[in-house]
Structure formats: C-alpha cells, structure tokens
Computed example of a mutant assay.
Amino acid sequence: MSRIIKRIAVLTSGGDAPGMNAAIRSVVRKGIYHGLEVFGIRKGYEGLIHGEFIAMNLGAVADIIHRGGTMLMTARSQEMTTPEGQKNAAAQLRYREIDALIVIGGDGSFRGAQTLSAQGIPIVGIPGTIDNDITGTDLTIGFDTAVNNVVQAVSKIRDTATSHDRTFLVEVMGRDCGNIALQSGVACGAESILVPEIQPDIDDIVAKLERGHQRGKHHSIIMVAEGATSAWNLGEELRRRTGFETRVTILGHIQRGGNPSALDVVLASQMGAKAVEILCAGETDRMTACVNQEILSLPLEVAYGERRPFNKGLYDLANQLAI
C-alpha cells in the first residue's frame, strides 16, 4: 500500500457486541493522535452504500467506553452481497476521499471488507462477535461480557431452581459455535452442557440428574447452546424420563446487552489502536488478533482458515466435575 493515509473511516457490522464502542473510541482517538481525519459510518455496510458518514472528533466518542451496543449502529446488508452494492460502497469511500476503512465485526463483516479490498480500498478488520468464533484470535470483542451476562442470569435462576426443587434448562446463543455455552456452563457449575460440536447424550444427562437427586440435590442447571438441540423438547424429554419438574429459560439478546466487562474494554481499546497503527504502517488486508495476550497484525484471510478446534479438554473437565 503506497498511498499516504490521511482520512480513515470506521464502521460496525453484523451483530452488536459489548466493547464495540470502546473499539470505536480507540480508533478515533488513536487516529486523531496521529494527525488523521476520522469518519464514522452509521448502520454498517448499509450506511456505507447510502453515504451515512459522520465526522468524528474527540468529543464524539466521549463517555462511550463503558456503554454496550454500538454508537454507530449496525445492520445486515443484503445489498452488500451483490457486485453492484460492493461497487457503490467503494465509490462512496472514494467520493469522500477516504484512504482506508476499519471494519469491526465477525467473519461475515470481514468478507464484505475483502470485497472492498479487491477494489483497492485499504482495509483492517477488528474481530467483534460474542461467539468468539473468528480463527486466528484467542478472543473476540464481546465474548467475555456475554459469558458474564449468562453467569449473572444463571445465578438468579439458581435461586428459584433451589426454592422449587426444579431442573432449569438455560438456552444461550450459539447456532454453530458452543463457546458461550461451554465457558458459562463451566463458570456456573452446570450439570450438563450441550453444544453444536458434540452430539448430546440424553442418557448421560438423565443419569446425572438422577444421581444428584439421590444425594439430595435440590436443583440442576443444564446449559444449552441454541444450535445443539431444542431446549423445550429436551426439557419435556427429561421430565418424561425422570419425573422431575423442568423449566426452560431462553436468555436471547440479554447476552449482548449491558456494559462491557473490563477485559472487553481493554481488548477493544488495544485492537482499535492496533488497527490504526497497521494502516499508518502502510499495511492492508490485515486483522487485529489477540494471541497469548499480545495484540498482533495478521492477514485478513487467516479469519477464513480452519476454525479453531472446539475446546474438548474444557468440555471433558466440565463433565468430570459434574459427576
């Protein structure tokens, strides 16, 4: 990348994740620190295509570091999946003389970024998704907060479960990835954890519930990733086979909301600053990544490599501790 970077833009795309605002703040302030003009793009790629640009100064990102969601808003853009939409997006950046674009989002957002890169737009991606399913990085912005949100919710559910001697099935997000269910399940001491990566063993779940009941346990928590099975159907099956009273709680978008954790704020701040440094160094087609607690610059294509293996060791430990 030979051009001198003077004007950059940032957008958030796909599902929102706690910590995105901290990343936006970092991009804006780090950019201004290096003498750059910084613009925000509202509503992701949809806003990019339709020219929803706003100039960002220091005051524009004041008091947002602790807020959930994204001040720039986000949207899923069907138009961006078409050649015409991609061409229009690049044209909007050139019309405003934007030299480079920083995209905060998941793998779908990164794919959109690569279509712009193919048209000569310098690009850096920042991984922001609560699923923590981006290859190449140990952590994505929003994952730690989502796990903590689940743990806090389950601590409240457990009070009711104990009072009424019930089995609660808690469904969490994770259509294709069970990371939230696994991490929060271990943190909550769940009796069973169901994830898309491993076929559920209903007989084993029943056996655990019955063993717990025999030793006087007054409640049970079963963590279910939405892509693993239907929590409602599983709850009915368990009630039929054990006779225990079951209840289902679907946490849904509660997991995405609220103030980001300290870990997510620090991670987002580091990644936002690193993205600006990458562009100032004349690099493009890169992504920020957290590897062994260090923030690195990796080729954007790494995000589309073989998915990081599911943490089977932690999953096995959870089962061992739930005997």
Rank of each mutant, 00 (worst) to 15 (best):
L139E: 09
I126E: 08
I49F: 01
D107G: 09
A55E: 11
G252R: 05
K208Y: 09
V172A: 07
R211C: 08
R3N: 06
G47I: 06
I5M: 11
T140C: 15
Q270T: 07
I104Y: 00
G305H: 10
I98A: 01
V291D: 00
W232D: 13
S13P: 02
G120F: 08
T115E: 00
I123T: 07
A275L: 06
T140A: 14
D165F: 09
Y45T: 05
T70Q: 08
G14L: 03
H50C: 02
G106K: 02
R286F: 01
Y45V: 01
G105N: 00
K87D: 14
H164D: 11
I104C: 00
A225G: 04
E197D: 01
Q78L: 15
N311F: 12
E171C: 06
D63K: 10
G120P: 04
R7I: 08
G212L: 13
E237Y: 00
G136E: 07
G40W: 06
Q92T: 10
S297C: 10
N149G: 07
G282W: 05
T12C: 13
V28Y: 08
T129P: 03
R94C: 05
T74V: 11
S109V: 02
S261Y: 02
T74F: 04
T249H: 08
L234K: 02
A262R: 02
V195M: 00
G69R: 11
S26G: 12
I102E: 00
I205L: 06
L116R: 03
R166H: 14
V186Q: 02
K156A: 14
M56K: 03
I64F: 07
G68I: 10
I198V: 15
G40A: 00
D204M: 14
I102Y: 07
R158L: 15
D99W: 00
H213F: 12
M73V: 07
M73S: 13
D203G: 13
W232C: 03
R94K: 15
Q293A: 11
E171M: 11
V27N: 01
V224N: 03
A273V: 12
S220F: 07
A9R: 10
I49T: 04
I198A: 05
Q199T: 15
L300K: 05
V276Y: 01
M173N: 08
G125S: 10
A181H: 02
Q255S: 09
I193N: 01
R240K: 14
E236H: 12
M173Q: 07
V265T: 13
S117K: 04
G313P: 01
A181V: 06
K156P: 09
V151W: 05
E191D: 15
K30A: 13
S230T: 01
A90D: 04
R175W: 08
T162D: 15
G85I: 10
G40N: 03
D107K: 09
R247H: 10
G85M: 10
N88I: 12
V10C: 02
A303C: 12
G85C: 11
V266E: 09
L93T: 04
I121S: 07
G125Y: 06
L93C: 06
